[in-house]
Computed example of a mutant assay.
Amino acid sequence: MTVRLAVTAAAITAALATASPAQATAIYPIADPDPFYAAPADIGNFRPGDVVRSRQIPAVQFPGSTVWQLLYRSTDSGGDPIAAMTTVILPLGGGHNQPLVSYQPFINALGLQCAPSHGLFTGEVKESVALNLLLARGWAVTVPDYLGPDSAYGAAKMGGRLVLDSTRAIKRFKQIGLADSPVALAGYSGGGMVTGFAAALAPDYAPELPIVGVAMGGVVENIGKLALDTYGAPNPLFGLGFAGAVGLEREYPKDMALDKWLNPAGLALRNQMSNACTEEIIADAANKKFTDYFNGSADDVNATQVHIIHANSLETFDGVPRAPIYQWHGTSDVVSPQLVREVAGRYCHAGTPVQLDMLPGADHGTGMLNAPRAIDYLADRFAGRPAPSNC
């Protein structure tokens, strides 16, 4: 994981820089064969966060828990209504308005079968076992499919909106029993970036949600700047970056169209990985580089593409979280520690309590080991203790 986000951002931004609005032939994933996931024809008549349908499912991975899945209405980056999915795990005894944690795992995938609503039960979501630590505290957990119905890997702002609408759906669904629950948001790496967007969007988009705390680590604050630091070198994880470009093309098919700029090998690779999960994506383009698949260079970026990159980067997104934040980051992380300090400082200046822990010598992988401290931080927020701040 140490270089995963660096390579992802590099390939994303390089691809976006050379994209042309003249073509819009994004390759979308195969539709989920389970009809439960299908948006109804009248999805636009639902409010964001309204439950479209629900079901209970067995889940031996979470002993003693009750598991629900909700299909709910949200909105994509173009303003169109979409149906999105979240999985809700209730601790032993069911829902009694106990604390609710929205956990965003790191999902690096283009196939819908890789989403958390499937991956929690197949091993694709590597953090699934750790969710039992939250359940053991008596907390309920929701894990949204934050890449959306097209698995738009890289569209972080949309992902943040899906997180908020999934929480709305849970609170509106009376059978779960969490209507009055306090809420916390948590995630690491790509999941941390989406968590950050949910927190920054919430004051304007979902001010009614009682978000008492946010825990996020290993956050990429600006995908474009990270790309400039890592652009051009071969890497064993280059496929994840290519997948990010494909995911953003799906979310912005006009402005991020790749057809004109993919060479024959790139066109073949896009088709090959259009329904792939993480391990296959890595294997499909291991030790490759940008020029193996793309024409042009990262110097050709236009104003529209810059705007979209900024819209999906927390450093340049003007929303400010109001809920208290615990953020951690390794000082040896390839994801810029300085940008983390700067964004945390901006939030502090706006009056948000931020506890920022910079972990000496930790890289992107070892930084994740700080998660137990984040859980303790959220426990204190649920208990109503004053939020610490080292602003």
Score class of each variant (00 low, 15 high):
residue 209 L to R: 08
residue 366 T to E: 08
residue 193 M to V: 14
residue 68 W to V: 00
residue 27 I to W: 10
residue 257 A to L: 02
residue 155 A to E: 09
residue 180 D to Y: 12
residue 5 L to A: 14
residue 65 S to Q: 03
residue 329 H to L: 11
residue 285 A to W: 10
residue 281 I to T: 07
residue 120 L to Q: 03
residue 45 N to H: 13
residue 119 G to L: 05
residue 97 N to V: 06
residue 372 P to Y: 06
residue 148 G to Y: 01
residue 343 V to W: 04
residue 114 C to W: 04
residue 385 R to C: 04
residue 162 L to Y: 14
residue 223 I to Q: 10
residue 224 G to Q: 11
residue 169 A to Q: 05
residue 54 S to R: 12
residue 113 Q to D: 14
residue 77 S to R: 04
residue 70 L to W: 01
residue 347 Y to R: 11
residue 87 T to C: 02
residue 80 D to C: 07
residue 71 L to A: 13
residue 237 L to V: 11
residue 372 P to K: 08
residue 27 I to G: 10
residue 98 Q to L: 04
residue 302 N to E: 03
residue 169 A to I: 06
residue 64 G to Q: 08
residue 247 G to I: 01
residue 316 T to A: 12
residue 349 H to P: 00
residue 84 A to F: 02
residue 352 T to F: 03
residue 168 R to A: 02
residue 116 P to Y: 04
residue 325 I to W: 05
residue 263 N to K: 07
residue 39 A to D: 10
residue 124 E to A: 15
residue 315 E to M: 15
residue 89 I to T: 01
residue 97 N to R: 05
residue 101 V to G: 03
residue 254 K to L: 13
residue 327 Q to A: 15
residue 220 V to G: 02
residue 210 P to V: 03
residue 56 Q to Y: 06
residue 170 I to N: 02
residue 289 K to W: 08
residue 197 F to M: 12
residue 96 H to P: 08
residue 280 E to Q: 15
residue 52 V to K: 05
residue 370 N to L: 01
residue 343 V to T: 14
residue 290 F to K: 01
residue 350 A to F: 08
residue 240 L to A: 04
residue 245 A to N: 01
residue 222 N to Q: 07
residue 98 Q to I: 01
residue 350 A to W: 10
residue 316 T to V: 04
residue 266 G to R: 09
residue 298 A to F: 05
residue 210 P to N: 09
residue 327 Q to M: 15
residue 351 G to V: 04
residue 188 Y to N: 08
residue 168 R to W: 03
residue 158 M to P: 05
residue 25 T to R: 14
residue 291 T to K: 12
residue 169 A to M: 09
residue 46 F to V: 09
residue 349 H to R: 15
residue 127 E to D: 15
residue 376 D to T: 14
residue 151 S to P: 01
residue 64 G to N: 06
residue 246 V to F: 00
residue 158 M to F: 09
residue 35 P to W: 10
residue 163 V to M: 09
residue 136 A to C: 03
residue 283 A to Q: 14
